[in-house]
Computed example of a mutant assay.
Amino acid sequence: MSTPLEHSKKVIRTIRQKSNRAILFYSGGKDSIALLDLMAKEFEEVVCIFMYFVKDLEHVNKYIRFSQAKYSNVKFIEVPHWILSQIHRSGMFCVPQKIRLIKLKDVIEAMKIKTGIQYAFIGEKKADNMNRRIKLRQYELEAISTTNNVYPLSNWRDGDVLTYIEKNKLPKPINYGKKKNRSVGVFFDTDVFVWLRQNYPDDLEKILKAYPLSQKLLFDYDRQNS
């Protein structure tokens, strides 16, 4: 039985035999950091799609700059996160807007068309949660060609990813708080806002400028901890 790393390399090389270019949905989290390193060693070009919550946050940009400097065959395309359509339509910390809801699959298909690349790599794992476990088990029963979406880290656990990052001297992912998986990215979350206030206040200001009402998260936190 192959190890998770051996399985990942086999999946990546299988796709490499079909295409010299690939898309990676890159978040700056641990899974995408490790997966980018694996892919950059095989493909002639890796196009990373970064979906931003608020554009040009320095604590995120430094991961993008690192990747661009380390891998000469990697480029980045930045697009709004699909979840912003839900936020703006519902009016979460903003004025509601009548806009079309989109899902991740819509962004994936749009990026395939934009780049002309057939295969999209995503760093989801069975160990992440029950929904992903079910999804990835179903994926394994189907041929990759049904969607051309690829999940090489499906058999990994968080410990495997962190070990790979350490052994390959890659940047450690951001940990916004003590909760599990608080490195998943920027969102309307108290841990994220408190971490930004302590470490990247200018990034927090950019978020508050875009969504002034989200200041309530910090008001509530400060009141509860005063």
Results as ranks from 00 to 15, higher is better:
residue 36 L to T: 00
residue 30 K to I: 00
residue 100 R to Y: 02
residue 33 I to T: 08
residue 73 N to A: 08
residue 61 N to F: 01
residue 45 E to T: 07
residue 28 G to H: 12
residue 83 I to D: 10
residue 103 K to H: 08
residue 58 E to Y: 10
residue 46 V to A: 04
residue 38 L to Y: 06
residue 31 D to C: 08
residue 64 I to R: 02
residue 45 E to I: 06
residue 87 I to A: 05
residue 77 I to W: 11
residue 86 Q to V: 06
residue 47 V to I: 15
residue 27 S to C: 04
residue 54 V to C: 11
residue 63 Y to N: 01
residue 74 V to M: 12
residue 82 W to D: 01
residue 78 E to N: 10
residue 87 I to T: 09
residue 70 K to L: 06
residue 78 E to W: 03
residue 88 H to A: 03
residue 50 F to W: 13
residue 27 S to Y: 07
residue 108 I to C: 03
residue 31 D to K: 14
residue 40 A to F: 04
residue 42 E to H: 07
residue 64 I to K: 15
residue 50 F to H: 15
residue 54 V to Y: 08
residue 35 L to I: 04
residue 35 L to S: 08
residue 76 F to K: 13
residue 72 S to I: 04
residue 65 R to A: 08
residue 31 D to L: 11
residue 60 V to D: 00
residue 104 L to V: 01
residue 33 I to D: 02
residue 89 R to T: 00
residue 44 E to W: 04
residue 54 V to P: 03
residue 101 L to G: 00
residue 29 G to M: 13
residue 67 S to L: 09
residue 38 L to C: 12
residue 35 L to W: 11
residue 101 L to V: 09
residue 66 F to V: 02
residue 81 H to N: 14
residue 103 K to R: 14
residue 75 K to P: 00
residue 29 G to F: 05
residue 85 S to W: 11
residue 46 V to E: 05
residue 85 S to D: 05
residue 27 S to I: 03
residue 63 Y to R: 10
residue 81 H to K: 11
residue 67 S to V: 02
residue 88 H to Q: 12
residue 62 K to S: 02
residue 109 E to N: 12
